[in-house]
């Protein structure tokens, strides 16, 4: 392959990877923005979403086939199920600790993450589960690169979900309530906003987005396992920090940038694929040193 073709190919890979990261980062960033909680379980919701999607696809494929006709309802069902799981987690684990010190809530989030991961591990026996679909390699040639329709649908779905979310948060009553809670919970309560319900809604949306990303990743990579959420959780956080945590366009930008960075980073001579994760975390640390507020973020002040 010529250099241009390699670069174009990596551009396509980077954008796809980036849209997975961006979808996960959105939920991370939203929850962080609203209640200042680093939800460690977020990456695991992505993993649970992939398994829920796998389960519902096996249900639907008998009758709708394993093409998009079966995949789209599976994505929706998985988003609904994982969204409700997210709400349940908030209700059981996080809400009782709303006023507790940050450290307690962080450790609880970690416990939830371990619980989800190990439950799926126990259920699947730690095996990789093949996620087979009937999507072919048909597509169009753009210049020197073959882009499949699947890849285009993946990126398209991510972009649509992100735009809808941005509109939801910036234009609707519920979005306004979320932004208000991010600023001052007590004042919101005095203004008659149902704080707990709004937070539950935030968890629902964030978890549903993670689930959508998980199913899409399963469709794209063709296999899922209990551990798939761990690294992506870390990377989604990195993406959120790069973009400016708590900022929705920032999370998208950060996710896409990180995807591209990873795709091109592995092409630099001397940095093989096995260094890719080291590369990403080094980038996170550099960002925290030189631009801790991220590309689109406002200066952060630790709450008084």
């Amino acid at each position: 392959m010529s250099l241009t073709a390699i670069l174009l190919q990596q551009l396509a890979n980077g954008l796809i990877l980036g849209s997975f990261y961006a979808l996960v980062a959105l939920g991370y960033s939203m929850v962080y923005g609203v209640i200042k909680l680093l939800n460690f379980a977020h990456g695991d919701l992505y993993m649970v979403g992939a398994f829920a999607g796998f389960g519902s696809l096996s249900l639907f494929s008998g009758w709708l086939g394993a093409g998009w006709a079966g995949i789209v309802p599976s994505i929706l069902l998985s988003m609904l199920a994982v969204g409700m799981l997210g709400v349940a987690i908030d209700r059981v684990a996080y809400r009782p600790l709303r006023e507790a010190p940050k450290l307690s809530v962080l450790i609880t989030a970690l416990a939830v993450s371990m619980l989800l991961e190990n439950t799926v591990l126990a259920a699947t026996g730690g095996q990789f589960t093949a996620f087979s679909t009937d999507l072919g390699f048909a597509g169009i040639d753009i210049g020197l690169v073959h882009v499949t329709y699947t890849q285009m649908v993946l990126v398209g779905t991510s972009v649509v979900l992100m735009v809808v979310l941005e509109l939801f948060v910036s234009r609707t009553r519920y979005g306004r309530a979320m932004r208000a809670i991010a600023i001052d919970q007590d004042a919101c309560r005095l203004m008659g906003i149902d704080v707990n319900r709004t937070i539950a809604l935030t968890f629902f949306i964030g978890s549903a987005l993670a689930a959508a990303s998980g199913v899409l990743a399963g469709v794209y990579y063709g296999s899922i396992n209990f551990f798939m959420g761990f690294l992506i959780g870390l990377k989604a956080f990195t993406a959120a920090v790069i973009g400016g945590i708590g900022n929705i366009p920032g999370a998208m930008l950060g996710g896409l940038l990180l995807g591209l960075l990873e795709a091109f980073g592995t092409q630099i001579p001397g940095i093989g694929g096995q260094w890719k994760d080291v590369f990403v975390f080094a980038f996170l640390i550099l960002f925290l040193v030189f631009r801790p507020t991220g590309l689109l973020g406002k200066p952060v002040v630790e709450r008084m």
């Binding site: 680093l38 460690f40 962080l106 690294l231 870390l234 956080f237 990195t238 994760d277 080291v278 975390f281 080094a282 996170l284 640390i285 925290l288």
Partner: peptide
């Protein structure tokens, strides 16, 4: 918390 998590992996 999360930076140390990344560092551990690194």
């Amino acid at each position: 918390a999360i930076v140390t998590l990344g560092f551990g992996e690194m």
